[in-house]
Amino acid sequence: MKAIRVLPIVLLLICLTAAPAFAQSHKVDATVLIPAELTVKPLLILSVNGVKDFSNDWLPGGVLTHSFRKEVTPVPGQEATYVESRAYEVWVYSNAPWAARIGRTDYIVRAARQSRFENQIDQENRLGFEYRKTDSDNWQPLNVWSMTPIWDAAGPTGNDGQELGSYQFRGVVDSRTTPGKYSFAVYFTAYQE
């Protein structure tokens, strides 16, 4: 019985609630809904000392190389001397998860009017390579054509980018290293995952 008494009140309340919505539906403005889609393409920018390299469609990630040419004169009896590069400030801008790697090309040594590639040099006469972050004294080996990890990011960098820090290379020369002019390139590579 109680429910029957309450029912008209409930119905009245429903009607009162629905009335403004009904009035709203009689708006006289014109409206059009256009479906749209924004496609954000993968974009990766690698910046080394302010020089930017943009990813393109056929190769995700950017490659930037810097030539590094030094004349090496081993000192007989001296166990190790070092030929250091300048510092490279590295930044990455990415709108997807990304990774950065470091490496070097093989070298050509020109000595006694002869040019030879790295693999043509006796193992014992080879020039060694290392890299480090400039705020660290910990030099790491840098093998030819290596993809040595320096950064892995699970997300985009945001608009401000990600500073990877300052990196430096050096060649390690000992008394057995063949004298000559060594030319090669170090590279930073970033790619999106």
Binding site: V32, L33, T39, V40
Partner: peptide, 11 residues
């Protein structure tokens, strides 16, 4: 982030 973002433009 890279990807597709569907939405509507209501004029």
């Amino acid at each position: 982030r890279a990807g597709d973002y569907p939405f509507y433009l209501r004029f």
